[in-house]
Design a protein around this nucleic acid. Structure first.
Length: 476
DNA sequence: CTGGGGAAGGGGCCC
DNA sequence: GGGGCCCCTTCCCCA
């Protein structure tokens, strides 16, 4: 007979012990703040601690001390609370840093949930937004506690007793049990999202922000974490330097009577968040069942109407993850992909994935089609008489006869199979989105098997015109 | 080490 | 709202 609530009570007891500093044998120092915890619990929860504590397993008599500069105490509070409660207090403000810290600590479950959280933010709902605006005035939390989104670990689904501390009046939205198992997030082994995210952050930061750079990470840190995220996470808690631009934007947002921010954490407040919090920011999240996980998510929508109503607002939507403003919701949706790393458009020829269809088509034209009647080497115009198409793997380009001779490609091999023009994949294969690292190159490998050889084709401009005509309908 | 070129990717905006 | 074009910046590779 299995008592379903046992796990919950056990963890609850451990959490209580942690609070009372009972039997804590591990000290974690995060930017000067000390967290006490049990090494058993940390070992079981984090790949990083597993590795760390394994090395120190012989010295169990001495308390283990770990020190981190890669993330803030607030972020680690979220992580540690999750470890001891199974609940992850994610907000739009902290999800990036929590994911970053989780990747550092090799907590794949947390990473997955963060990805799901971010992905869900793409589910932009005007309806939700309208609902919020219509309810925001009367539904503002009376006790001043902002809403947050609390994710619960899977095992809690088996617990019959709801969490006592998650009272509805706290404005928490519960994504209970195995709800997120129904969601499609990419496997933890895939890192593209983080890379994209970090890259974007890097660009954002490099262009707009002057950030305090934290100390360099030790060499043995997991490679999962991007340097920029480290920088971001290593930013001291008290550091609140914000560029003027961002300050202005947020001032505008906060001064608006209809502006809102979503998902402000109640217990865990990210750095700088209090500065950003507006008195209008709290709203009531929908409580929901596990069957409708997305509905329970805080809808991450740009801030609307932050500008004078009589004046047509130029920028109507604000990205919840950065300071970017756009006029159209579709542009915001497109922009959010650079935060989530979503790449729904795979290249059929090489498997590379793109966040945008136009980038894919551009890539395909550039890399896999030799549409440009220009010699790649000398840039001269080539015709079917003065040049040839060279195929190198999946790349196709043109060389004039002189450059061909210079390159020593005198033995022209014409591959009739390769001569068939590569066609742009229809519709970008959206169905395969979110399958990171899944090579979609079954067709390609046939081509690439002989990638070591250069395949020369006769230049035929008319063919290219036909090719273009054939391709375009596929693109559109 | 540096500069140039190609490719990728992001934003604005038109259709 | 999606598709696509244009422009720009950034990154990476190579000479």
């Amino acid at each position: 007979m299995e008592i379903s609530s046992h796990q919950f009570h056990l963890l609850e007891q451990l959490n209580e012990q942690r609070r009372q500093d009972l039997f804590c044998d591990c000290n974690i120092l995060v930017e000067g703040k000390v967290f006490k915890a049990h090494r058993n619990v940390l070992f079981a929860s984090s790949g990083y601690f597993k590795m760390l504590l394994s090395q120190n397993s012989k010295e169990t008599s001495q308390p283990t001390t770990a020190s981190f500069q890669a993330f803030s105490p607030d972020t680690f509070t979220v992580i540690l609370d999750f470890v001891y409660s199974g609940k992850l207090s994610l907000t739009g403000q902290n999800v990036i840093e929590v994911m970053s810290a989780a990747s550092y600590l090799q907590m794949t479950d947390v990473i997955s949930v963060c990805k799901t959280f971010i992905k869900s933010s793409l589910d932009i709902s005007e309806k939700e937004k309208d609902r919020y605006f219509s309810l925001s005035d009367k539904d503002v939390n009376s006790n001043g506690v902002d809403r947050s989104c609390v994710y619960s670990a899977g095992w809690r689904a088996e617990s019959s007793s709801p969490p006592s501390h998650l009272s509805p009046d706290q404005g928490t939205c519960m994504m209970g049990g195995n709800a997120w198992n129904n969601l499609s997030y990419y496997p933890p082994s895939q890192r593209t999202a983080q890379q994209q995210l970090s890259k974007h952050e890097q660009r954002q930061d490099s262009g707009k922000r002057s950030r305090h750079l934290g100390p360099q990470q030790p060499a043995d840190i997991p490679p999962y974490k991007s340097s920029k995220l480290e920088d971001r996470a290593a930013e001291p808690a008290g550091h609140s330097a914000q560029p003027e631009e961002q300050g202005q934007i947020e001032a505008e947002v906060e001064s608006s009577h209809v502006g809102y921010q979503y998902g402000q954490g109640a217990d865990v407040t990210p750095r700088n968040q209090q500065e950003r919090e507006s008195p209008h920011s709290s709203g009531k999240a929908k409580s929901s069942k596990g069957e409708e996980p997305y509905r329970s998510m805080p809808f991450i929508m740009g801030v609307m109407g932050s500008w004078a109503e009589d004046d047509l607002p130029r920028m109507r939507f604000k990205c919840p993850f950065c300071t970017h403003l756009v006029k159209r919701k579709a542009d915001l949706k497109r922009h959010l992909r650079c935060h989530t790393g979503e790449r729904p458009y795979p290249c059929e020829a090489c498997g590379k994935r793109f966040s945008r269809l136009d980038h894919l088509s551009s890539h395909f034209r550039t890399i896999h089609q030799a549409c440009n009647p220009i010699c790649r080497k000398c840039k001269r115009h080539v015709t079917e008489l003065t040049g040839q198409v060279v195929q190198e793997g999946t790349r196709r380009y043109r060389l004039c006869n002189e450059c061909l001779a210079e390159a020593g490609i005198d033995s022209v091999r014409v591959d009739l199979v390769a001569e068939a023009p590569l066609e742009f994949p229809p519709d970008g294969n959206k169905d395969s989105q979110w399958h990171y690292g899944e090579d979609n190159r079954s067709d390609v490998e046939i081509v690439e098997d002989g990638s070591g050889d250069l395949v020369i084709q006769q230049v035929d401009d008319s063919e290219d015109e036909v090719e273009e005509k054939e391709v375009k309908p596929n693109i559109r």
